[in-house]
Amino acid sequence: MPEDQRPPSALSNVSLARRAWNIRRKALLMGEVQGQGYIGQALGIADVLAASYFHALRYDPADPEWEGRDRFLLSIGHYAIALYAVLMEAGILPEEELETYGMDDSRMPMSGMASYTPGMEITGGSLGHGLGIAVGVAMGLKRKGSDRFVYNLMSDGELGEGSTWEAAMAGAHHKLDNLICLIDFNDQQADGKSTQMLSAEPLLDKWTAFGWHAQRVDGNDLDAVVAAFDAARNHPGDQPRAIVFDTLMCKGVPFLETREITHFVRVEKDEWAKALAVLEEGKPA
């Protein structure tokens, strides 16, 4: 494949809104298989993943290890259900495997493991390590003379990890303009709101002070998400780039959006079909 060619899937006429809806639906179907899963995060980050894989990333669905690909690193291992959904949508994983989610010998364990899953670049977790790995990958690509980008998706909870800020310093020091950090700010952790556990505010000022080009947008507004990706990729400076995406847990399923605890949202057995039916009502063209 020529170095500058994007995959056929990224050139199709399926709207990003429909891609995001498909990702949400696949995540719900996988959750139904196990009766559990990090559904809140998957529904919330679906718009960012749709823009990542069907607007920004260069990759070859037939060859997940193609040297000319951009690298997408999932620092948040428990978001694996969301990544599996977009890998299926992108044609990297066969949709027929959806029903094996979380089962013995499945290529889709409940927490992501790179050795099992085509298209998964790293094993994410313990949390806080993804950005450090991304810095190393970006440096390696620079030394190879590659113009490919490294995207690292991390959670707002990881902003409380010292290793994240060590990596941020290293990225700026080495002028890694091929590194884009995507931060899912849904303000939820296992013990409560991220802002109440350990606030990272003022967040944009911090990233800027660490030498990064930083933006913050509504992560569930596809136009804003696409514009942020474009601004990050086309920024003329030699510093790494960060995009903070404010997202809503369980986006697209209103009765789940209002649950008090959404980090690992409880979905009753009879609610999976209800969630899918509610999602169907909002199906885009």
Rank of each mutant, 00 (worst) to 15 (best):
L179Q: 04
A200L: 07
A200V: 05
A209E: 10
Q196L: 13
L198F: 15
L176E: 02
D205E: 15
A190R: 09
Q189F: 07
L176H: 08
Q215K: 12
I180F: 11
D187Y: 03
Q189E: 01
Q196T: 08
D205F: 14
A209W: 14
A190E: 07
M197I: 14
F210R: 05
R216N: 06
T195F: 14
A209C: 12
Q215S: 08
H213K: 10
L176A: 01
Q196D: 12
D205R: 14
I183P: 09
W207I: 05
P202H: 12
L203C: 08
C181M: 14
N178Y: 10
I180W: 04
Q189C: 00
L198T: 05
D177W: 14
D177E: 10
A200C: 07
W212E: 04
W212H: 11
F185P: 00
F210D: 05
N178A: 00
E201M: 04
F210S: 01
A200F: 14
D205C: 09
T208C: 07
D191V: 07
A209D: 11
N186P: 08
L204K: 10
L203P: 07
L176P: 03
K175W: 12
G192Y: 10
Q189A: 00
N186T: 06
Q188K: 06
S199V: 03
S199I: 04
Q196F: 15
L198H: 12
L204P: 03
S194M: 13
N178D: 02
L203V: 14
L203A: 09
D177N: 12
Q189W: 08
Q215T: 06
N178S: 01
Q215G: 03
G192L: 05
F210K: 04
I180D: 00
I180E: 03
G211A: 06
M197Y: 15
R216T: 04
S194C: 09
D191N: 04
P202L: 10
F185K: 04
E201V: 00
K206D: 15
G192P: 06
G211P: 08
Q189S: 00
E201R: 10
L198W: 15
P202M: 09
L179I: 02
K206T: 12
L204A: 02
W207Q: 06
G211F: 15
T208A: 07
L182W: 13
L179Y: 12
S194E: 08
A214R: 12
Q196A: 08
A209G: 10
L179A: 01
W207P: 03
P202E: 09
C181P: 05
T195E: 13
L198E: 05
D187N: 07
L179E: 01
P202T: 06
Q188R: 10
A190P: 02
M197L: 13
L203W: 08
T208I: 13
A190M: 08
D177I: 00
D191S: 05
Q189T: 02
T195W: 15
I183C: 07
K175N: 09
S199R: 11
S194T: 13
W212I: 02
N178C: 02
S199E: 05
E201A: 03
Q189N: 00
S194Y: 11
Q215P: 04
A214I: 07
G211D: 07
E201P: 00
I180Q: 03
P202K: 10
G211M: 06
